[in-house]
Amino acid sequence: MINLFINPFEQLTDRQLLSYGLLIFAAMVLLGWQWEFVADGIVQLHHAPAKPLWKVLINQSINLFSLSLLMFLFGKLSYAKTRFIDVFNVVLIANFTQLLVVLVLLNPWTNHILLPVEKAILEGDILLKSVPKQNLIVLGIAGFFAIGMLYYFFHLLVLGMKLAMNSKKVYQVILIVLLTLLLDSLLKFTNPYL
């Protein structure tokens, strides 16, 4: 069972990967709509004003398709037999980590604890003296969890891409991470979201 989370790409069939991936995508769209957040980058999640469902769907699709296309082009250049559907499945499954972040950190209960921290920072209380101690403990745990999930995201992305493009080269792993971070910055800078 644990292997399924460490390397789902070898344990599941294409159809299973696509089905689970689409379920994750659907959950992200519905939660983004209900809990009012936007993934304004590949590894970004921020609160946003309420939006209609179709706008949340398009915003989420921008990340999914831009990363899939970039990884597919990279994969195709490195290994001619790379298929788009395999790369697409990898990106869909890697989003599982974002779903975990959303469920743990952007749920209404955690929001209730973390919003005073955000408010204190906006009001200039950088040392967070006005924030209760228990809120700061939750903030600390949330920080570690977010870093862990970021690592898990790249673990899944790299592992899946290595399989999709039959790669055994270390420099390609570095390029996958760098290209993803570059796309993340580009999306953040151009802000194509509705």
């Binding site: 070898e10 344990q11 599941l12 069939t13 294409d14 395999d86 399989l163």
Partner: peptide
């Protein structure tokens, strides 16, 4: 390879890489 991957319960690239 697609049929084989389904029968083995593995993804297509896993089986294709093994063949390679």
């Amino acid at each position: 390879l697609k049929e084989m991957a389904n029968k083995m319960g593995k993804s297509y690239p896993t089986v294709r890489n093994k063949l390679d």
